[in-house]
Structure formats: C-alpha cells, structure tokens
Amino acid sequence: MSLQITAIVERWPVDGHFIIARGAKQFVDVLVVAVSDGTHFGIGEGTAVYYLGESAEKCLRQIEGITQELANYPVVVARQLVQSKLLPGAARNALDCALWDLEAKQMDVALWELAGLKVLPAPLQTAFTISLNTPDIMRTDAQKAAADGYGLLKLKLNGADDRERVAAVRSGAPKAQIIVDANESWGDLDIAAEAEALKNIGVAMIEQPLPVDQDAALADISSPLPIFADESCHIANDIARLRHLYQGVNIKLDKAGGLTEALALSKAAHNAGMQIMVGCMLSTSLAIGPAFLVAQSANWVDLDGPALLAEDRPGGFVFANGKLRPA
C-alpha cells in the first residue's frame, strides 16, 4: 500500500484589516497537503510562520522533497518519520495533520478518539482578535466584536500608546474579558509597570512582551499579570527553559509542526504547572480542526483564524456567541 502525497498553495483574503506590530495582511497563503492510500484520503493545512522565514512556497518545496521517501511506508510509520525528516513548521504541520486524518479514516474512528481524548470535544469560547490600529478604530472594532457575541478579545499592541488602545477597547466593550499580545514589541518598556497599568484597565493576560532573545529578563520581573510565551515556545523541549520565565505558553500547530508535537507540548506544559493557550495563524477551518482537539484542555483559546477571513471553507467551524464548534 503506497501513499500518494500532494500539496498546493491556496490564497484566502482577509476580512477588512489584520494588523500586528510586524505589519498588515490583506490575505493569507496556506499550504494544503493531501495523503491517500488509494482508498482513504487525509488532508491537512498549514500557514507559514513568517517571522521564522517561512513562506507557503518554501513549505510546498519541503513537502515535494519528501513525498517519494514516505511513499512506501504505512501511515503510522510515515508520521513518525516526518517528525525527524522535517523541522517544526507549517510544512510538517500540514503533512502531520493529513497523516493523522488518514489514519483515523483507515481505522474508522473519529480523530478525537485517535488523539486520545476521552469525551466528544465540546464547543469552546474563543478570543476574537482586535487588530493594531488607532484607539478609535480599535474601540469601534471591539464594539462590533462584542455585538457579535465575543466576550473575550485579544488586542494586538506595539509598545506605543498601548494603554490608550486598551482603554479605548475597554470603553467600547466594557463587559469583555481582554488579553493583549505585544508580539515582542515591549523591549524598551518597564514590563512590570506596563502590566500593572493594563491590569488596572482590566487586562487578564499578556502574550510575548519581549523579543525571543531578550526573554531571559523575565526571570527578574514580578508581573501582576500572567505572561505567556508565543514566539519563544515552539516544541515540548522548550518548556524546560520557559517554565522559569513565563506562566503559560501559546501552542500553535504551525509552530510545533503538527498535532503530534502539539499534544506533546500540551502534556509537557501541564506537567510543568504552566497555563496553556491554544492559538492559530490566519487559516481556514481545515487547520483549526486538530487545534480544536488540543484546545479542549486549554486555559485560553484563540482559534479565530477563519473568523478573520472574508470567507471560510464550506462546512467549516461555526462561530456564534463567542464560541466555536464544528459544523
């Protein structure tokens, strides 16, 4: 039984604006990988981790370079080999998830059962991202998100006038829970003082305030808010270093390189007593399916990628009243 592996790049427009400290996006290119044994068919999606130098085209070439090598292995062995043949990233994520999907279909079981969950996955509250912008525009975006039922808002910040932005969002969505993502932009700020000020406005958590090469400084900072690692956390082996710096980690399958490593990372973080957020890149619902399983045991969920696109795949996740659930 040989495996046929194919991959393509798809472009999906963003709904309105998506702006973070590193820049703006009008669309996202995703890598879609399909694996067939001739009878069953598995599929996965990955979004290039651009701050690591990935692109959808580079990821596509990674898949094309490994297809023949995996062709003659059973799906379980192929998935094991992928962990060492490809580095963590979007290419391995898309292929790993496609192999999980194929294995579940070969065994005629639900993916959540194959992944080791004990009960049917439940709908989850998800954050909705408020892009970096002027305070007035962020207030308006927050008002709209709250009107759409989102009770958890994730604000993109950049280290300049962030308190004004948070205050504007708080006035626009007074009942919402707020978390903030600095995307490594607070290198010149007093982190403890900034956290104290944001706590007073009602912020509940801070994500990746410092650049990756500066986060050792967090060991000497006493923050009144929990600080989560995003860009600093990719795989399970990162936990040994991060547990002394951060209170939690943001698990993204594109960073981890698939469901296999994301499950291992979740277990390592839990064992270390750290909190967990499960997040995503801009993506369609195809990429959210495996992440949704990991998120069942998370403290925070940020799986709004498809809700930020102009349209999603048919039959994708349903976003309603601030929650996501399979269609």
Score class of each variant (00 low, 15 high):
193 A>W: 01
137 I>S: 05
133 N>F: 10
55 S>G: 11
165 R>G: 06
40 H>K: 14
177 Q>K: 03
62 Q>H: 13
198 L>P: 00
172 G>L: 15
173 A>Y: 00
233 C>W: 12
243 R>W: 09
131 S>Y: 05
118 K>V: 08
189 L>M: 03
322 G>N: 03
97 C>V: 08
136 D>R: 12
193 A>E: 03
6 T>I: 04
74 P>R: 15
306 P>K: 11
134 T>L: 13
162 D>N: 01
315 G>D: 08
133 N>C: 06
141 D>P: 04
50 Y>P: 02
251 I>R: 09
11 R>K: 10
237 N>S: 13
79 R>D: 04
158 N>C: 14
291 A>M: 13
8 I>L: 07
131 S>W: 06
61 R>F: 08
26 Q>A: 15
199 K>C: 08
133 N>K: 05
268 A>T: 02
294 V>W: 15
28 V>S: 13
125 Q>A: 13
65 G>Y: 02
269 A>F: 01
195 A>N: 08
14 V>D: 03
1 M>F: 12
114 L>M: 07
250 N>C: 14
298 A>P: 01
140 T>A: 13
141 D>H: 14
225 L>G: 00
46 G>M: 06
241 R>L: 14
212 V>Y: 07
259 L>I: 09
302 D>L: 15
114 L>R: 06
16 G>Q: 09
177 Q>F: 04
166 V>A: 01
273 G>M: 13
13 P>A: 11
8 I>N: 10
143 Q>I: 11
46 G>L: 11
192 A>H: 03
166 V>S: 00
65 G>C: 02
54 E>T: 02
180 V>H: 00
94 A>H: 07
154 K>G: 09
301 V>S: 03
117 L>C: 14
74 P>N: 06
246 Y>M: 04
49 V>T: 11
204 A>S: 12
118 K>L: 11
250 N>W: 14
135 P>H: 11
154 K>L: 10
188 D>N: 12
301 V>I: 10
30 V>H: 11
120 L>A: 12
39 T>L: 14
1 M>G: 07
153 L>A: 11
45 E>Y: 06
132 L>R: 00
208 Q>Y: 09
163 R>C: 14
323 K>N: 03
49 V>C: 13
202 G>L: 05
233 C>V: 05
68 Q>P: 00
317 F>M: 11
17 H>C: 08
78 A>M: 00
85 K>H: 05
305 G>D: 04
42 G>V: 06
116 G>H: 01
100 W>P: 02
172 G>W: 09
202 G>M: 04
123 P>N: 10
149 G>E: 09
254 D>A: 15
276 I>Y: 06
25 K>A: 15
88 P>Y: 09
75 V>P: 03
31 L>C: 11
232 S>L: 12
149 G>C: 10
24 A>K: 15
241 R>N: 13
265 L>M: 12
37 D>C: 11
265 L>H: 02
225 L>Y: 13
97 C>P: 01
250 N>F: 13
